[in-house]
Each structure stands twice: as structure tokens, then as C-alpha cells.
Simulated assay, not measured.
Amino acid sequence: MSTNEKEHLLHIFNEQLRHFSTDTILFHQAVAERLGLNSTDHKCLDLILRNQPISAGKLSDLTGLTTGTVTGVIDRLEKAGYVFREKDQDDRRKVMIRVHTKKAESEIMSQLESFGHSMKAMLEQYDNEQIKFLFDFFERSRNIIQNETLKLKK
């Protein structure tokens, strides 16, 4: 492969990544709207779900949002019935956030079911080595995104 051909392929690949990123954001915005949430609240709910129980401070650390903004997010998620606050068992001064799992599963997962089936059908077309390659690509890409995000916040 010539240098020009590789540069051209890398350019096209970069463009596809940009489209993928935008389409992913728009997809999650559509899901959030179906749930009566905004996209930030929706993705914070995902972080809470994967890290529960979680304190508001920890959610602030994970997202880079101010503690005041996180309080607003939690208030809206609580009002929508997706999360609840409870006292920390080890430190009663601390409040932990948990997800109402049944509501999340019934309402959120139903919005993602079709997407999950479509992605599974697509991935079944790849062999194990190709899937391992994709996993490696996304793992490395996430590391780059996380590092670049940290740089932007300095």
C-alpha cells in the first residue's frame, strides 16, 4: 500500500469516526427525549447505573460537571422516578444515589432493545479474531478520548 493510499484511507476512516460520534450522540439524544430526559441526564443515569451506589461528588468527578450541575441532574432523575437518594451506611452525613432498577429496565432497556438486536446481528458477521480486533480498537480509542478530555480540562 502506498503512502498516499494509506493517508487517503486514514482520512476516510477519520471522517467515518466523526459521523459515528455524531450519530451516537443523536441516537442517545433521541433515547433521552423518549424518556423525558435531556442527553446529559440520560448519560449520567447510565453512569449511576454502572457505578451504584454513587455519591454526587463521585458522579461530578466522573463527568467533569460541577457539583451544582450534578445536583440538578440528580433532582431531575429523581423527579422522573429513575433514581433515589439514601444515606450512606458507613457515613450517615453522605448521600448515595441508586437507580430504581425495575423502572430503568422496563423503560430504558425497551428503548435500546432494537438497537441491541441490530448490533448483535451485525457483529455475528465477524469472526472471533475480528471481534477481538474491534474490542482492541475501541479500548484504545476510549483511552485516547479519556486522555484528550483530561487535557481539555486543564
Rank of each mutant, 00 (worst) to 15 (best):
I48K: 02
D88E: 06
K43D: 03
E86Q: 04
N38W: 02
Q111K: 10
H117G: 13
D88M: 06
T40W: 03
E78G: 13
L49I: 11
D61P: 06
G116V: 04
V31T: 09
I48T: 03
G72L: 11
A80Q: 02
E148L: 14
G116S: 02
I25K: 13
F27P: 08
E124M: 12
N4S: 14
M96L: 15
H8R: 15
A80M: 04
L59N: 06
V99C: 03
G72Q: 06
I144P: 07
K151C: 01
V99D: 04
S106V: 03
T22M: 13
G36H: 06
S55W: 01
T69Q: 12
T24R: 15
V83K: 00
K154T: 15
K102A: 10
R98M: 15
E113H: 09
A121L: 02
Y126H: 12
L65P: 08
L26C: 05
D127S: 00
L26E: 11
K58I: 04
T69M: 12
D91V: 02
H42A: 15
L26N: 03
D75C: 06
Q16S: 11
H11A: 15
N51P: 11
K132F: 07
L10P: 04
F20I: 12
I12C: 12
T63I: 08
A56I: 10
V83R: 09
S118V: 07
R142Y: 07
D136R: 07
F115S: 12
K132Q: 09
F137Y: 14
D23L: 06
L123H: 08
Q29D: 05
C44E: 02
I12G: 09
G64R: 00
Y126S: 12
I144Q: 08
V73P: 04
K79Y: 08
S118C: 02
R92V: 12
R50T: 06
H42T: 09
D46Y: 10
I74F: 00
E107N: 14
D90E: 05
A80E: 05
F137V: 15
G36V: 01
R34F: 00
R85S: 09
N143T: 01
F27V: 08
I131C: 07
A56L: 10
E7Y: 13
T69L: 10
Q16V: 14
V73K: 04
